[in-house]
């Protein structure tokens, strides 16, 4: 969980960086997106690794949750979980499943059309199409709403998960408070970037 989680956290950072360029410069966004879409190392090595990372992370998460439920066959009549552990740490499966459902929508929105465009329809390369494709997706207020809520849930997931992955890998030392601060800052800033991008394109396009 920890290793696949850290890998996905790293990926989120680079995804947010590329997407942020769509707000600053459409040309830069198009050029970076084209590179990511057609570079063979990205397409045939990094992309399968990323998909494998996502699958490993959520399958392991669900398996661990099932094992954990089995470990307490009789539930407490009264269980005061909030007295000793934060809500986010006790509800990783909930926030994780929301993020997973969001990934389904996200793949349907961007990844599936992209794969169809390149590999099924075999369209010619067009390095200028990415920015307007992105902006069109954020015209729908419903979609923007779902994205915003999902990223709030992602922030909650990262708030616990990023710091927790260090503990799972045995890192608990004098640097841990600094690591915790960094991971919590990251957990807020990265989802906020995604939320900002979705809102920016929505309001910039319609107004």
């Amino acid at each position: 969980m920890a290793l696949s989680g850290l890998f996905l956290v790293f990926f989120l950072g680079q995804h947010a960086t590329i997407n942020l360029s769509s707000v600053i410069s459409p040309e830069t966004f198009n050029s970076w997106s084209h590179f990511m879409g057609y570079n063979p190392v990205v397409q045939y090595i990094l992309q399968p690794i990323l998909i494998a990372g996502v699958i490993v992370h959520f399958v392991m998460g669900i398996v661990l949750e099932l094992q954990n439920r089995k470990a307490r066959n009789v539930r407490y009549a009264q269980y005061k979980g909030g007295a000793n552990a934060p809500w986010v740490s006790r509800n990783m499966i909930l926030t994780g499943l929301v993020v997973l459902a969001f990934l389904g929508l996200h793949f349907y929105d961007f990844w599936v059309p992209e794969m169809a465009y390149k590999y099924i329809e075999a369209n010619p390369e067009d390095p200028t199409r990415y920015h307007h494709e992105l902006v069109e997706k954020f015209l729908s207020p419903a979609r923007v709403g779902i994205y915003v809520v999902s990223f709030v849930l992602l922030a909650l997931h990262l708030w616990h998960g990023f710091a927790s992955s260090f503990q799972s890998m045995g890192v608990n030392n004098k640097y841990s408070p600094a690591i915790r601060n960094f991971t919590r800052l990251y957990a807020i800033v990265v989802p906020l970037i995604f939320i900002f991008i979705a809102l920016y394109h929505h309001f910039n396009h319609t107004h």
Binding site: Q67, K70, A71, A83, N84, A85, S89, M92, S164, S168
Partner: peptide, 12 residues
């Protein structure tokens, strides 16, 4: 026993 998800409840 179940798996550790680092909630920290045990320490508290």
């Amino acid at each position: 026993f179940g798996n550790c998800t680092n909630t920290g409840a045990c320490e508290v």
